Structures are given as structure tokens and as C-alpha cells.
Amino acid sequence: MDNFLFAVAAFVLGLLILGLVCVLKGATLADRMMSAQLLGTSGIAALLLMATAVSEPAIIDVALALALLAAFASIAFATSSGDRQDQE
């Protein structure tokens, strides 16, 4: 079962790398932010899979911290994009 979890985590990390390409080549700021959210979600999924595979609960704490940072990043983006629209 651990090998399966490691394989799925590796697959998710591969998708995370593809998402990084979207962050770098995104057409608009919203596209880049959505790709960054994909990176956060993929990172959380990979960390949770690894935590289950190695039975290490501390990795779950890291995944929760990443989830919190991803939520704050979307709030910051929404706030800053709203400020830009008000100035136009």
C-alpha cells in the first residue's frame, strides 16, 4: 500500500510541475493566481499522501500550514485586484 501512495504522490508532484509552467506562462493575473492555487492544492495532496505512507503526523501539520497560506494568498489577490479595479 505504501508503494501505491508514493506512486500517487509522485503523480501529483508531476502535475504540480505542469502547474508551475502555467504560473510562469499564464496570460492574465487571474490565470496565474488560479495556477498558484493549483500548486497549493497539489502540494497539500502530495504532503497528505506522504504523511499517510510514512505514518508521520508532523507532515499533516505542514500540509495544514500550506492550506492556510494558500487561503491567505487568494484573499490577498482578491483584495489587491479589487483595489486595482477601483482605481480605474
Rank of each mutant, 00 (worst) to 15 (best):
G40H: 01
V23C: 11
L47H: 01
L13A: 05
T52C: 07
L13N: 04
F4K: 06
I17F: 11
G19W: 04
A76W: 11
E56L: 01
L20W: 03
A45I: 15
F72I: 14
I44C: 07
Q87A: 05
A27Y: 09
P57Q: 05
V62F: 01
I60K: 15
S42R: 13
A65V: 12
S74D: 12
F72H: 02
A36E: 03
A7W: 03
I17V: 15
D31R: 08
S80W: 10
A45F: 07
T52G: 09
C22S: 10
M50P: 09
L68N: 05
T28R: 13
T28C: 05
G40K: 06
C22V: 08
I75N: 04
D61A: 13
A70Y: 07
T41H: 02
A78S: 13
A76V: 12
S81Q: 11
F6M: 04
R84W: 04
V62G: 00
A73Y: 11
A65H: 09
L49G: 05
L29A: 14
S74F: 04
Q87G: 01
V21D: 02
D31C: 10
A63D: 04
Q85G: 08
A46W: 03
G19H: 02
L68A: 13
I44E: 01
A9Q: 04
L64A: 14
A63V: 11
S81E: 09
R32K: 15
L48C: 15
A78Q: 09
G82K: 15
L68E: 02
E56R: 10
M50V: 15
S35N: 08
A78C: 10
F77S: 03
L64Q: 14
K25S: 07
S81Y: 01
A53G: 06
A45T: 15
A36Q: 05
A71G: 09
S35K: 12
V23G: 12
L39M: 14
M33E: 15
A30S: 07
L69C: 14
Q87E: 09
Q85E: 13
I44F: 02
L20H: 03
F11P: 00
T79R: 14
A10K: 07
Q37L: 08
R32G: 06
S80H: 02
L39S: 12
A76F: 13
